[in-house]
């Protein structure tokens, strides 16, 4: 359904995308997981036709975005990361305007807006100006606008950013129901749990590159059955190397070492070597195989907001 090939995009000196490619199948929910600045929004902007890539190609439903942009945009629903609404208008007026641009009118437009408003539970506030809404309510209307024309393909850019748990549950529920109706979805997030719970396949993106891609199972395979252990302390990498014989080292630098171990006894043996050598150890963290440990292995850092 969506085929992205080697797209690159730079803003001046910043290489936001260093050549990414992936394929999203029809009816699939595809996750884009990455920290802030990874390039998620840039990728979504290119797929939605807002930005042109410096190179590479995007094909949606067999159509090239450069050639048949208008046709593609008609079947695309885009929910931008930044809330983009007309604050002085009511929710319903916003929906009527955006729905109108997608070719809806009259009864059809009215029914469609009523339906999406019910979906997000804001029917009763529909005729209040958006400026009087809370952040979570605005997020929900922001979502409604991308869905009003019942698009076949939905692109969501961090739709749950900074909202209360209840609104988040509401939004995630709506996305699940869209997928169950056969819609194709790209979902970007920097929340591990969302990617884990929602997405069929996940691309881990960092620094403008896709570091790994696959189902949750496939991704956790990357760390195998092993725990990911990170030891912080005061030592040089040469010092530490002495203690690491026979251990699968994932990453080593001064004052920090990350290793993969399959049993907990191995951890205590390793730490003992540090202690007997009189090296001070600060923090030790152990991650069981999970998307989080995969993420840390791939990007060298934890994912926090």
């Amino acid at each position: 359904m969506i085929e992205v090939k080697d797209i690159r995009k730079s803003f001046g000196d910043v290489q936001a995308l260093k050549g990414i490619g992936f394929t999203v199948r029809e009816g699939e929910i595809y996750g884009f997981l990455g920290p802030n600045g990874a390039g998620k929004t840039t990728a979504i902007s290119i797929i939605s036709g807002l930005l042109l890539p410096d190179s590479g190609s995007v094909t949606i439903a067999g159509m090239d975005i450069r050639k048949e942009g208008r046709k593609i945009r008609n079947i695309l629903g885009v929910i931008p990361q930044e809330i983009a609404l007309y604050e002085e208008l009511t929710a319903r007026e916003n929906l009527h305007f955006w729905g109108g641009l997608y070719g809806l009118s009259g009864r059809e437009l009215h029914d469609a807006s009523t339906q999406v408003l019910e979906m997000v539970g804001l029917s009763e506030r529909a005729d209040d100006p958006v400026s009087q809404y809370s952040g979570g309510m605005k997020r929900r209307i922001n979502l409604c606008i991308g869905l009003i024309h019942r698009p076949q393909i939905i692109l969501l850019d961090e739709p749950t950013l900074g909202i209360d748990p209840q609104a988040r549950i509401n939004i995630l529920g709506i996305i699940k129901s869209e997928v169950s109706q056969g819609k194709t979805v790209i979902y970007t997030t920097h929340y591990l749990e969302e990617a884990e719970n929602l997405c069929e396949r996940i691309a881990i993106i960092d620094d403008g590159e896709i570091k790994a891609e696959g189902t949750l199972g496939e991704l956790t395979q990357l760390v195998g059955e092993k725990d990911l252990v990170t030891i912080n302390g005061t030592f040089t990498s040469d010092q530490a190397r002495n203690f690491l014989e026979g251990v699968a080292v994932d990453h080593l630098e001064d004052n920090m070492v990350r290793v993969l171990v399959s049993e907990s006894s191995a951890i205590s043996r390793l730490l003992e070597r540090f202690f007997t050598a009189g090296v001070s150890v600060g923090e030790v963290s152990i991650k069981e195989p999970s998307l989080e440990s995969v993420f840390i292995k791939l990007t060298g850092r934890e994912l926090r907001d």
Binding site: V78, W98, L101
Partner: peptide, 14 residues
């Protein structure tokens, strides 16, 4: 600034 212009470009509008 508020993002509605960018959003307009995700619709069929030119």
């Amino acid at each position: 600034r508020t993002g509605t212009l960018a959003r307009l470009f995700t619709t069929p509008v030119e």
